[in-house]
């Protein structure tokens, strides 16, 4: 966490703090997230709060919402001539078998014991091999000096050095205060659930089981810690 920053969590009202609290967890948690495509309304609140919480400069996004459609927020014709559109929020999947970790020549990207894939931007040499390796395209390079629309830095983490690669940290600065990641906290549709994948009866495990949660690019074998719940079956008139 950056020096001299006061956590906004401290300023939250008790109700808000409770709303953001991390639920039950096992002795050795493996943090993960479930994203519900049925509920996601493609609003980008989670992406925008990520931008502000993590002081992400213009041109870079750790979190973004893809449209399964023709273009941003536009549907596509599916079999039978019907129209369909879904959203797919995408950020670092915190892969258990993380290609980025494997390829980083200097171990600047590495696993924490709680399953999170972290990034040491003080060590990173900016070779961008991890960006090549990541099948999800969630890594961003600090190509130039950061540009912001206002004269102010935002959020709770310090700016990253020029020439290094960065990505979603699962908001470890918030986890440290027992608060869910900013994107989860912000989602107006309740499409994001954060928790411990190791907790067998926890919310994540239950949702994944009951809603047939799936892994994105399962064929890549990355074992992501983020899982998706597919949209429901519709009952047309």
């Amino acid at each position: 966490m950056a020096d001299g920053r006061v956590s906004p969590v401290e300023a939250l009202s008790p109700a808000s703090k409770a709303w953001g609290e991390i639920g039950p967890r096992s002795a050795a948690p493996h943090w993960g997230m479930v994203v519900d495509q049925e509920r996601c309304i493609g609003c980008w609140s989670c992406a925008v709060i990520c931008k502000s919480e993590n002081d992400i400069p213009l041109g870079m996004w750790w979190n973004r919402i893809l449209t399964e459609g023709e273009s941003l927020d536009q549907p596509e014709v599916v079999r039978g001539g019907a129209l369909e559109m879904q959203w797919l929020p995408l950020t670092c999947q915190h892969c258990e078998n993380a290609p980025c970790v494997k390829v980083c020549p200097v171990q600047a990207t590495y696993h924490r014991s709680d399953g999170l894939v972290m990034q040491d931007t003080d060590r990173c040499i900016g070779c961008r091999y991890c960006m090549i390796a990541c099948p999800y395209g969630v890594r961003n390079m600090n190509w130039g000096a950061p540009e912001r629309p206002t004269p102010h830095e935002t959020g709770m983490v310090g700016a990253r050095p020029l020439g290094t690669v960065e990505k979603c940290t699962m908001c470890v600065q918030r986890l440290a205060e027992d608060q869910v990641p900013a994107c989860v906290w912000s989602c107006p549709a309740g499409a994001r659930v954060f928790g411990d994948l190791n907790e067998p009866e926890g919310r994540l495990a239950t949702l994944i089981r009951e809603r047939e949660g799936y892994e994105l690019l399962e064929e890549a074998g990355t074992k992501p810690s983020v899982r998706y719940l597919p949209p429901r079956r519709r009952s047309p008139l």
């Binding site: 390829v103 020549p105 200097v106 171990q107 040499i125 900016g126 091999y129 390079m141 020439g163």
Partner: peptide, 22 residues
């Protein structure tokens, strides 16, 4: 090609044996 060429020494200090680049 490196974003931080001055840190190239990290390749020796922290080399990662699973990286083809190493």
């Amino acid at each position: 090609d490196l974003g931080r060429p001055e840190r190239i020494i990290n390749i020796l200090l922290y080399f990662n044996p699973t990286s083809p680049m190493i």
